[in-house]
Design a protein around this nucleic acid. Structure first.
Length: 110
DNA sequence: TCAATGACGTCTT
DNA sequence: TAAGACGCCATTG
């Protein structure tokens, strides 16, 4: 498990319930610009319990194959957090996580 | 080496 | 909006 994956998991764990982040956003916060695809791989390969459902594409859409097991699971989890989602998409305008930079500085040790 | 791959992102039509 | 074309980048065979 690479150090980068650990950094990604650290950021993902900071996303509060009811809020979401994009793959690219997580990558940036983890200090890995242009590494959105690495975030998706890290999530897919992780064994530990993570709020992976709070990560979406920059378009606000779920990236898993429509109708797949994971897709349905994600929709379910998001709705359970009171997030409105239609046709596999939600409003980033309404739900995207806007972390406070100062708070982040103290939560991340890198 | 090198081409293919992918839970992505940005731009253009 | 939607769909393509590209760009990007670590990983894989």
């Amino acid at each position: 498990m690479s150090h980068n994956y650990e950094k990604i998991y650290t950021v993902v764990k900071l996303i509060p319930a009811g809020k979401v982040a994009t793959y690219g956003q997580v990558a940036d916060l983890a200090g890995l610009p242009r590494r959105a695809r690495m975030v998706s791989k890290a999530l897919k390969e992780s064994t530990e319990s993570l709020p992976w459902h709070r990560i979406l594409a920059a378009s606000g859409k779920i990236s898993l194959p429509v109708g797949s097991e994971g897709y349905l699971e994600q929709v379910q989890r998001l709705r359970s957090e009171n997030i409105e989602i239609r046709n596999g998409r939600l409003s980033l305008q309404d739900y995207q996580w806007q972390p406070d930079p100062v708070e982040l500085l103290f939560r991340l040790d890198f």
